[in-house]
């Protein structure tokens, strides 16, 4: 399992990155999740695709972290550097980073699974333990918003408003 985790680490880091709001949070999440995976390796059932199991473990760890927070979630965009290549920025990277950081993590992770990992909606739904309809809706909203974002600044402004309207939970501060 250790070797599998090492081989998968770039993908795991990318996955943790779309859930986190900062590089530090990403690394903390990834470290904690990998630790848990090794400690609970017996939970892995042969036959299950390892990468999906690992993603689901990280996602579960992220949810657990949210539930255990003592302080309210402070709304705000994720760090741009999470999604922006540090070396050799190419055309379009920044607009993608700006777009992605403006989304709530729940939607970023769906976009990653569907467009980055190539999962079907159904597989993404299973992995995230989320209803299929929710996944389909998040993928649709995300792609539509990104399409609008690519159309130009005006569309981008609209997208920001759309995101806040469609995802009020991002602004919600738990009691």
């Amino acid at each position: 399992m250790r070797t599998q985790l090492i081989e998968m680490l770039p993908r795991l880091r990318r996955f943790a990155g779309v859930l986190a709001n900062s590089a530090e949070e990403r690394e903390r999440l990834l470290s904690t999740a990998c630790d848990a995976m090794l400690e609970n390796a017996h939970r892995y059932q042969s036959g299950v695709q390892f990468d999906r199991w690992a993603f689901s473990e990280i996602h579960a760890m992220w949810l657990k972290g949210l539930a255990e927070r003592d302080e309210p979630i402070v709304p705000g965009p994720a760090e741009e550097r999470l999604f922006l290549p540090q070396a050799g920025e190419i055309d379009g990277d920044r607009e993608f980073a700006e777009f992605l950081r403006s989304l709530p993590a729940q939607q970023r992770v769906v976009l990653l699974l569907v467009y980055g990992e190539g999962l079907s909606y159904e597989d993404a739904a299973k992995l995230l333990a989320t209803p299929l309809e929710t996944i389909a809706r998040r993928a649709a909203r995300g792609l539509i918003a990104f399409s609008a974002h690519l159309e130009g600044p005006a569309a981008g402004t609209t997208h920001q408003a759309d995101v806040q309207q469609l995802y009020p939970e991002q602004k919600r501060v738990p009691a």
């Binding site: 993908r11 990277d93 980055g116 792609l143 539509i144």
Partner: peptide, 25 residues
């Protein structure tokens, strides 16, 4: 057509993120 462009761009961008992490390692 617009959605297909966005779809392709998302795939490229996520792939670029992955390359970034691989390069770091």
């Amino acid at each position: 057509a617009g959605l297909r462009r966005a779809n392709a761009r998302l795939e490229e961008a996520f792939e670029a993120m992955l390359r970034e992490h691989r390069d770091e390692e």
